[in-house]
Design a protein around this nucleic acid. Structure first.
Length: 423
RNA sequence: GGAGAAAUGGCAGAGUGGUCGAUUGCGACUGUCUUGAAAACAGUUGACUGUAACAGGUCCGGGGGUUCGAAUCCCUCUUUCUCCGCCA
């Protein structure tokens, strides 16, 4: 959530930046400012009445104690008009505050200056691409045929148990999942991230604080009986670990990693993009999360991107890095790098990681702050990235590493799988 | 699921209708002393809002109510603890 203070100070700049993010209702910015002005006015008037009330109440108190009951009664009468006024103003204030809040939550985060202009994924800027994109032979099979051939992922069975998008990993397929998770967690651990296993369901407050509510309500599975949401990413519970914290400056950066399954309704998705492992309702992911000093958060973003890049290199996967344009970025992000691995048989790039700096957009909702040397409370910056999402990695590994003898396992994974070939 | 008890500042723990934003202890920070440290002594030590700066306002688990006035009384929700039941 954007800070009202920032909007007040630079309304035109805010509008310009919002436009870059494909947000086309600049009038909301003006409405927010006028609502906030109204809010302040009401608040000041209300405070004034409350102040009078407090003073008189104290006087009544001392009169009562000194036994001057009649004078006290007179004071009580005096206070009744004041009380009526406070009730009216309190009601007004609530209306204005609600309106203000509802407008404020519709605004996406402002893009950093590094974000390229653009409205569609085609306008993302490729900042790195491997020299050689593998060309497989014409009879190379897409992963959904390979998973069937080797009986390692069973989509039909998942349909029987739950529905489309909930595959069952079997045998070496299941072990491969476990191996990747362990590998990713070990790498994150080596990079200084503290490993956690968070809940897979969160409450409304958590979903709001990281920005999923109200923006992405329809994308989450909602457990209505208990008002919980199944997490769409570990980002939600892990970042919320820090909700409400007032840290010491020297505690930064705080680094967490965690593996969780992720649940996404993917309403509106269909067609080729959802084939096989490309897009699922439940998938596994290892996430890295940091809270950092505002002065250092962009360095940290680069460091996290480097971490993700190294994973792809170690897995020997061809990849490219995109700096997302304003129109393709997520609601809460200020700058995002997407990592795409090449899927040789599908002949296309699949997004396997997204690394973002949210600046204060999340921390403002989280109330995640630190105390600086001057004793001021400053909002920290939050960042996160997938490191990595499993299904598309598996898809690429299967397709790119297929041979007539079977599917080769990258050497870095072999100590985790215990085998070097799926056959 | 049933019965009971509780929720106060970083922590511990007072406070049962008025000068309580909150006694006290510990911790932390600053100063004095010291070559330095410890000890001792003195002081400081929550957040939000608001202002040019003051002032003012709000916050004692969340929400609502009673009252001129609520940490304190009432209702409700949540959480924790104890006992019973159930269970991996």
């Amino acid at each position: 959530m954007l800070l009202v203070e920032l909007i007040r100070k630079n309304p035109e700049e805010v509008k310009r930046k919002l436009a870059k993010k494909n947000f086309n209702q600049p009038e909301i910015v003006d409405e927010i400012i006028s609502l906030d002005t109204k809010r302040k006015k009401i608040q000041t008037a209300l405070d004034d009445f409350l102040s009078q009330r407090n003073t008189i109440s104290k006087e009544i108190g001392s009169l009562m104690q000194s036994g001057q009951k009649e004078l006290a009664e007179n004071k009580k009468n005096e206070i009744s008009t004041i009380k009526e006024n406070t009730l009216v103003l309190e009601a007004d204030l609530k209306v204005v505050e609600d309106k203000l809040f509802n407008q404020l939550v519709t605004l996406p985060n402002l893009p950093s200056d590094l974000v390229p202009e653009g409205k569609t994924p085609e306008e993302n800027v490729c900042t790195f691409i491997v020299k050689e994109i593998p060309v497989l032979s014409e009879d190379a099979k897409p992963h959904w045929e390979l998973t069937e051939k080797y009986d390692i992922v069973d989509f039909e069975l998942g349909v029987k148990l739950t529905g489309a998008g909930f595959p069952v990993y079997k045998g070496k397929g299941a072990i491969l999942q476990r191996a990747l998770i362990s590998f990713f967690l070990d790498e994150a651990g080596k990079a200084g991230y503290n490993e956690v296993i968070p809940p897979l369901m969160v409450n409304e407050e958590s979903a709001f604080a990281t920005g999923q509510l109200p923006d992405k309500e329809g994308q989450m599975y909602h457990v209505t009986e208990d008002k919980f949401y199944l997490i769409p990413t570990a980002e939600v519970p892990i970042t919320n670990i820090l909700r409400g914290e007032l840290l010491k400056e020297n505690q930064l950066p705080i680094k967490y990693t965690g593996y969780t399954p992720c649940f996404r309704r993917e309403a509106g998705s269909y067609g080729k993009d959802v084939r096989g492992l490309n897009r699922l309702h439940q998938f596994d992911k290892v996430e890295i999360v940091q809270a950092q000093h505002p002065d250092k958060s962009y360095e940290t973003l680069d460091e996290m991107a480097k971490h993700v890049e190294n994973l792809l290199i170690k897995l020997e996967l061809p990849y490219r890095i995109l700096r997302l344009c304003g129109g393709d970025m997520s609601f809460a992000s200020a700058l995002t790098y997407d990592f795409e691995a090449y899927s040789g048989a599908q002949k296309k790039w699949l997004e396997v990681s997204s690394v973002s700096n949210f600046e204060t957009f999340q921390s403002n909702r989280l109330k995640l702050r630190f105390k600086n040397a001057d004793g001021q409370n400053i909002l920290a910056h939050t960042l996160n990235g997938s490191a990595l999402a499993l299904p598309r990695i598996v898809a690429c590994l299967l397709e790119n590493n297929q041979t007539p003898e079977g599917i080769k396992i990258p050497s870095v994974l072999q100590k985790y799988t215990g085998f070097d070939m799926i056959k």
